[in-house]
């Protein structure tokens, strides 16, 4: 009898203990949770909610279901900025990663002026995007901009780089790659320095050349860094629009506009807050898909030590 009672009591005590431990954990998490809920989760939910309502200018807002989303699908500008954003991402992400890796490998070696080079490569990252955009605006200015002056020196004619829909995107991509690569280089540099030098020596004893070692050892060992960087770059390509405000305002004719900038225009120039909410939900969905892909799929496939 007594033994039976004890046995039945034990799980109860265990449960209470577990609950106490849980409560403790929840208490510790509370401040962060409150902040996140207030400034991230609630706004997201509110945005989602608003995206199902009419604008309600001079009148109450009414529930319209997915009408705003239907309007979005019929909005040519939405499709264009989405296309632009994809082009922008597909061009900036691999290019900035490749450049970052190249620079990191270069300045990781023992060469003279190494710290100067590192600093030079990192400088663009330290500058605010607004400053960078202003600098590059001067490069791209027709006729007396740096680019045109150089071209003219070699006898070519100038070009209205930012005013031509055919070139404006490339111009912005080049600038963003320049700006981002230095930042990513730092991550690669840090990762490269965690690779023990003996690995290189062991490989050289085995007869592996520099390129073979880079391909078969360095690159795989950098994979977690590469993954981290590419997710960041991808998210950045949807988040970074400061340059548009300074350089093109998304023009000419939306040729350089990106999704987030379009959201800004809809919200603060058109004052169409519900449509802006609709677009925002779409953007959040895109970012969520990227994040989930990273956490659920890619992390499992890429080796972590």
């Amino acid at each position: 009898m007594v033994a039976a009672a004890m046995i039945s009591a034990r799980p109860k005590t265990a449960k209470r203990l577990r609950w106490a431990a849980n409560a403790n954990a929840w208490l510790l998490l509370l401040p962060a949770l409150v902040l996140l809920a207030t400034f991230t989760h609630y706004p997201i939910l509110a945005t989602l909610y608003h995206s199902f309502f009419s604008l309600g200018r001079s009148g109450p807002a009414t529930f319209v279901g997915i009408e705003n989303y239907q309007a979005m699908l019929e909005d040519d500008v939405f499709w264009q900025v989405l296309r632009n954003n994809l082009v922008f991402a597909l061009a900036t992400v691999p290019a900035s990663i490749a450049l970052a890796l190249l620079m990191a490998v270069w300045v990781d070696r023992k060469i003279t002026g190494r710290s100067f080079l590192r600093l030079a490569f990192f400088t663009p990252t330290v500058l605010p995007m607004i400053a960078v955009a202003n600098i590059w605006l001067f490069f791209y200015t027709p006729d007396y901009g740096l680019l045109d002056q150089i071209l003219r020196f070699f006898g070519f004619s100038g070009h209205n780089w930012l005013g031509d829909p055919g070139t404006v995107m490339t111009c912005l991509i080049v600038m963003v790659v320049w700006k981002e690569a230095g930042f990513f280089m730092i991550f690669y540099l840090a990762a490269l320095q965690t690779i023990p030098p003996e690995l290189k020596e062991a490989a050289s004893v085995e007869g592996a050349g520099r390129w073979y070692f880079f391909r078969r050892v360095t690159l795989p060992l950098l994979m977690p860094t590469t993954l981290f960087i590419s997710i960041n770059a991808l998210i950045n390509s949807f988040k970074l629009v400061d340059q548009l405000v300074i350089m093109t305002k998304g023009g000419p004719n939306n040729a350089s506009s990106l999704l987030l900038y379009y959201i800004y225009e809809v919200a603060f120039n058109f004052w169409d807050t519900t449509y802006a909410a609709t677009l925002t939900v779409t953007l959040i969905a895109i970012l969520a898909v990227i994040a989930i892909t990273k956490f659920v799929y890619l992390d499992r496939r890429i080796h972590y030590q």
Partner: peptide, 14 residues
């Protein structure tokens, strides 16, 4: 915005 886009589409030859 609509007019500006149209103007830009025309002057850029798009």
């Amino acid at each position: 915005k609509i007019v500006n886009d149209a103007v830009q589409a025309a002057v850029t030859g798009a």
